[in-house]
Simulated scan of single mutants.
Amino acid sequence: MSEKDMQSYFDKLNEANSLLKKSLRVSNIEALAETLTNISDGKVYVENDVPDKDTVAKLEVIYKGLKDFNLTPLQLKQAITVSIIKSEKDDKTEVNKLMTPDAIGLIASLIAYEILNVQDKKSVNVVDPTVGSGNLLVEFIEQLNMTDKFKINAAALDNDDALVSLTKSFSEVMNLNIDAYHQDSVAEWDITDIDMAIADLPVGYYPVDENAAKFKTKADKGHSYAHHLLIEQTMNNLNDGGIGIFIVPSQIFQTDQAKKLSEWMVSSVYLQAVLDLPTTLFASKEAQKAIVVLQKHGGKAEQVGNVLMGTIPDTNNPKAFEGFKDQLQDWAKNFKG
């Protein structure tokens, strides 16, 4: 499909979003979630005569036109992610809820692939406890699916019901089976039997001190860091030997609460990798993030010989990035699970 056709598809998707936003009186993100649900189910949902018959007729014409494009899964995902970015911009979405770029999902999937390959896993239960728009999880699954090596069963949690709806509808359009739940991920989880977690963690203070009280990573005084609590809660909910791949601030081990996080890590998990993400992905040094790979104690898990550390090269630098993939393979050879 040509770039012009891709633009036409996006324009039609945007037209449907605008109609639904006006008719339902919702945010752009909520309108996009509704659009994707309609596309997936092949019909326009109407509740209490909203949207009205005129709007329904216009939407049906648009959805019929979208079907005629015959996009590949990759092209479809590109169109949806551009729509998410536009919706976030129009809604003035807060930084913690912005979509995770595809490049980070690709890198996370490469790390997961090498670990799972060494462990010879065929079926993997994955969770994203802070799923947001769903792009990190969808990209992660799509990349692993392309290898034809694993059966991925995925779950998603988030405390924003609009984003949970978007994740669910996004995954349905992509023909992925993701169970999405609206909940505070620091609170108790109902899902069990989880092998792996990936998360682009929101950064900041967790406001409910009572919920934080049971965690070893809680602050001694005042509010605790939400990303610390989420790491602990997620690792607690994994199977023995389970893997957590977390996108965190690069300075995570240099803050006023870093000591509590480090003490918990020593007692409960193996720190297997700390990798700064490519600097080109971030607008400033302050915004720089890293990938931390943790493994829960238990099973056959053990500390790898050398913690993988360094800066991941830009994905647009093929030679350097291939070198990084070679490093990943050598590191993952020591993984047990």
Rank of each mutant, 00 (worst) to 15 (best):
D209Q: 11
Q143S: 10
E47G: 10
V138C: 05
K296S: 04
D326S: 13
S109I: 08
S23R: 04
A154P: 05
L261F: 13
D314E: 02
G132N: 03
G204N: 04
D41N: 15
G105Y: 02
E114K: 12
M99P: 04
Q272T: 14
L36M: 13
N317F: 04
A287F: 05
V118L: 06
L32V: 07
H297S: 11
T72L: 08
F246L: 13
A57D: 08
L261Y: 08
N211I: 15
Q75W: 00
Q288N: 13
T217Y: 04
D276T: 13
M309F: 11
L98T: 12
Q327K: 15
K216L: 07
K336F: 00
K43D: 07
F170M: 09
Q295K: 00
N153Q: 14
T311M: 03
I107Y: 00
S169M: 05
L261S: 01
V127M: 09
A155N: 10
G42W: 08
I312H: 00
Q251H: 09
M235L: 13
N306L: 10
W264S: 05
S18T: 15
G310Q: 03
A187V: 15
D179P: 01
D326L: 15
H227A: 07
S250M: 10
E139Q: 15
E142T: 09
S267V: 09
Q119V: 05
A197V: 15
K149L: 13
S224P: 04
A156L: 08
L36Q: 08
L71H: 04
K53W: 00
Q75T: 08
D240S: 13
A16E: 01
Q233V: 14
N306R: 07
